[in-house]
Design a protein around this nucleic acid. Sequence first.
DNA 1: CCGTTATGGGAAGTTAAACTATCCATACTG
DNA 2: CAGTATGGATAGTTTAACTTCCCATAACGG
Lengths: 210, 210
Amino acid sequence: MRMAELSAESGVPVATVKYYLREGLLPPGERTSPNQARYSAEHVQRLRLVKALTEVGGLPLASVGAVLQAIDGSATPHETMGVVQEELAGDPPKVSEEAAEWAAALLQDLSRRHGWKWHGLESRAVGNLVAALATAKELGHEKLAERLDEYCVLALRVARLDVEVVTGLTSFDKIIEAGLVATVLGDRIFTGLRHLAQELVSFEVLNRAP
Amino acid sequence: MRMAELSAESGVPVATVKYYLREGLLPPGERTSPNQARYSAEHVQRLRLVKALTEVGGLPLASVGAVLQAIDGSATPHETMGVVQEELAGDPPKVSEEAAEWAAALLQDLSRRHGWKWHGLESRAVGNLVAALATAKELGHEKLAERLDEYCVLALRVARLDVEVVTGLTSFDKIIEAGLVATVLGDRIFTGLRHLAQELVSFEVLNRAP
DNA sequence: CCGTTATGGGAAGTTAAACTATCCATACTG
DNA sequence: CAGTATGGATAGTTTAACTTCCCATAACGG
């Protein structure tokens, strides 16, 4: 297929497809002559993935690029998912030194108690978690942190479910993309469910004892 | 206190404070003369809240403004949290009609089975959830949706925890802000925990049967 | 009391991200 | 073979979130 069809099929405007090609988010088509190219169904799927990551996942294009490079590159699934999580997280915001230390200690203690491997503070995933906890403290809402253990247990259950969903796949090839989708869309889906549930529960509670 | 101190205390540059004042994100200080004003500790707290919502929560300033107006306005806690959730969600991306209908039906069925009130598709919270599910389907990852029930049960547990954290507060006044913080930062914290747990679990699984 | 510094307020400029529009030489199509 | 489409490149647009600059007035230090 050529440009127009690729664009129609994926729902991405021609100008934007060209832009994605320039940015390396979409691999170039197979050239049929010095200035003509042909695209395949994989290009369509790739465009759909980019759309999903940006529009639903809210990732900046630069992160999408890094993620795509990782899944295309010859890294192990585990390494690739590491990159995905780093990119998903974005730069952690700066917080005060003391709040950050408090949060880091809290987390380290948590992972010790749950027998989790402590990966240090390098990763952005951890950095963001620390920043969020530190910010909660700075705003005077340590209550959230006090229940961290319980959140942790539930997060573990969700993660087990995530991994089950992904490993339930037959194609060993598509497992990385599935992991990506499960992580990015899974976050949105779970957050959405949580919000619905919050409204439900808060309604129950407020109506029982107003 | 005056500008310089407000800025130092909150960590927000003077020019940015002025910008927030112009945008109505920060209420004007108490005027002491036609062109001089004094700010209070509440202004500092408000700035910290704005910083938390933008930097950690990733909300656009316009949404922060809407949220702040809601918590300042004379709405019930329940109404206010409704606004908070709408703003938190952002515009749902467009997805194909048929995938959207599939997702909506799935959700409606889900809420019937769990005895949840069905709020229709108006709210952005639901719209985003539908879009995320629809996108997963369009990408060929319906597996996620098949386990929706299980995610749902866990989301409910998380939400119960959220509400407990918030209602455990003494000050009836600060309960709305606490709800806001619990929702916005809570999302980030839980997502962070989930990612750590995903890595842990996937490592276990991949190492057990490589 | 007076020179220096800070302040409130607003207009204009900046930066970055993500497109979008316009060209143009070549290629395909009816 | 006339007319439309394509690939490739460059420049322009839009929006968000700031920053800079300016100025008249106020506060502050000696």
